[in-house]
Design a protein around this nucleic acid. Sequence first.
DNA 1: CTACCCCTACGATGGAGCTTCGTAGCAAGG
DNA 2: CCTTGCTACGAAGCTCCATCGTAGGGGTAG
Lengths: 136, 136
Amino acid sequence: MRSFGNLEAAIMDRLWTWDRPATVREVVDDIARERDIAYTTVMTVMDILFRKGWLTREKDGRAWRYCPTAGREEYTAGLMRDALGESRDRAAALQHFVERMSDEEAEALRTALQRIGGVPGAAADASGPADAAAPR
Amino acid sequence: MRSFGNLEAAIMDRLWTWDRPATVREVVDDIARERDIAYTTVMTVMDILFRKGWLTREKDGRAWRYCPTAGREEYTAGLMRDALGESRDRAAALQHFVERMSDEEAEALRTALQRIGGVPGAAADASGPADAAAPR
DNA sequence: CTACCCCTACGATGGAGCTTCGTAGCAAGG
DNA sequence: CCTTGCTACGAAGCTCCATCGTAGGGGTAG
């Protein structure tokens, strides 16, 4: 997974926000409103992101149109998973993690957990999209 | 800011595993069992980790003894926090995150959530953001 | 058909951070 | 006094990311 550099992040950010296939030209023009940047710089980096698998692309006339392979939130979740994976005592790591969470985050986390599987002790788990229905 | 290089990770890993103040000599000798490494290389990196705040140290005779300022799991939790913080829709990110979790992890997460504020509606009373720096 | 413009491909340069180690110096023990 | 072990300082080297220039190709307007 690994994280992005500055320019890489700026590019991904735009593609994620726009949520549609975009050309190098569009990205360049948008970044250029904040700072000077050469067309080829952005093109090079987008090509690197493509080759590293973060973007897909398809021809649109002469230009390529790029799309992120993963959504912003998927990417975030991937980073979190990477981080967690490096720990030995995952339960302890998760404990530390939730301890510093805001109330809203904790609430969102509870909701997310309820959606993927029944609450321990409760019998009802047939609601919601059946995605991970693995019994313990 | 976050995340370590290879050598840095190897050093932190040993300090975390040993869970006691260790000298450069001890770390060097342990790493040297796997690959060639100069004493000064390890010393330099440990000094950098110290200056960056990842390690504390105290004199023990002629040598310094180093200790991590945060435990492995605290560090992991910090990485996860960093990752989550960059997302816009945190609820969605958390949803993606838990969806790919193993059953054991989900269970550990539920337990952790219960511990910080088991009852819905009740806010977790996080007392003091105490950064642990105590060697055990 | 020709000139122009836009886009791609490729490669070169530079900087930041991590890694690597050598040399010089100091302090303790024999 | 000499050996041993540790520290301090700093010089390279390496790997990525960032930055851009130049060369080239294919539409499009005259």
